[in-house]
């Protein structure tokens, strides 16, 4: 699989309160949850590294952040994005839709949890979760990275 070409992956974020965490985020924003990811950035909870620093900083990990509703029709795209993501990589499920299907748990079109498709490192509950919940969830990655 060819590496994923995305300018988003050239940016490095620090997670507020967790200086050891340096991440690149591929945000698959599929529904309202995506707004909370943006809110985490504007609230200063996810801090973008200065570009001149960012270029030389190695990402500690690439994060595939699924924030929103995944339909079965869209599932192959999620799998492709995951497979194309460079190591070290982790997948984070943000919100009820990504976790289990959430409000759409009984819909015939919605995937009942993206952990059916790719391995998840962290599940963040909420509908949508608060921006602070995103930070608390990303903080769990500190342990994941050390183990992996």
């Amino acid at each position: 699989m060819t590496p994923l070409q995305s300018s988003a992956l050239e940016r490095r974020f620090r997670v507020s309160g967790h200086p050891q965490l340096l991440i690149s985020v591929l945000d698959v924003g599929l529904a309202c949850c995506a707004l909370e990811v943006g809110a985490a950035i504007t609230a200063g909870l996810l801090v973008l590294e200065e570009p001149e620093h960012s270029a030389v900083l190695e990402p500690r990990m690439n994060v595939l952040l699924i924030s929103g509703t995944v339909t079965d029709a869209l599932a192959p795209g999620i799998i492709r994005a995951w497979e194309a993501l460079d190591e070290p990589r982790v997948a984070v499920s943000f919100g009820a839709c990504a976790n289990t299907g959430g409000p759409y748990w009984d819909a015939p079109t919605v995937t009942k949890g993206i952990d059916q498709l790719i391995p998840m490192s962290v599940y963040i509950p909420g509908c949508p979760p608060r921006p602070e919940a995103l930070i608390a969830g990303l903080a769990r990655l500190a342990g994941v990275g050390d183990a992996g």
Partner: peptide
């Protein structure tokens, strides 16, 4: 309370 993320689905 919002710090409830889990590393498994059952942890929720």
């Amino acid at each position: 309370e919002h710090d409830l993320a889990a590393t498994t689905a059952g942890g929720l």
